[in-house]
């Protein structure tokens, strides 16, 4: 995993803009940025799309596995 991390850091550092300091994150932590849609609603949507559509999966944090038809 460490090699992977290093690899990605090198690739990404090319498009790295000036770092954002810890105290400059009030906008990034705004409700509209963090939680535009309620978490429970998002979990439910993920489940509905999973069970009603032909494709599934995400790299994003969301509800876990599921049994459904």
């Amino acid at each position: 995993m460490r090699f992977l991390v290093v690899g990605i850091v090198l690739v990404m550092s090319g498009c790295q803009s000036a770092p954002v300091a810890v105290w400059e994150r009030q906008y990034l932590s705004a409700d509209g940025m963090n939680r535009p849609v309620s978490i429970l609603s998002r979990q439910l949507n993920t489940h509905v799309y999973f069970s009603k559509e032909g494709s599934y999966g995400s790299s994003q944090a969301s509800a876990g596995g599921c049994g459904c038809n």
């Binding site: 990605i8 990404m12 498009c15 790295q16 803009s17 000036a18 770092p19 954002v20 400059e24 994150r25 906008y27 990034l28 599934y56 999966g57 995400s58 790299s59 994003q60």
Partner: peptide, 24 residues
């Protein structure tokens, strides 16, 4: 079974982006 990997990056005080891959 499956795995996922995602990278995220702050672009500025007001913007960020992410890129990910998943396999199941």
């Amino acid at each position: 079974k499956g795995f996922s990997i995602a990278w995220s990056n702050l672009l500025s005080k007001v913007s960020l982006w992410d890129l990910g891959f998943f396999y199941t």
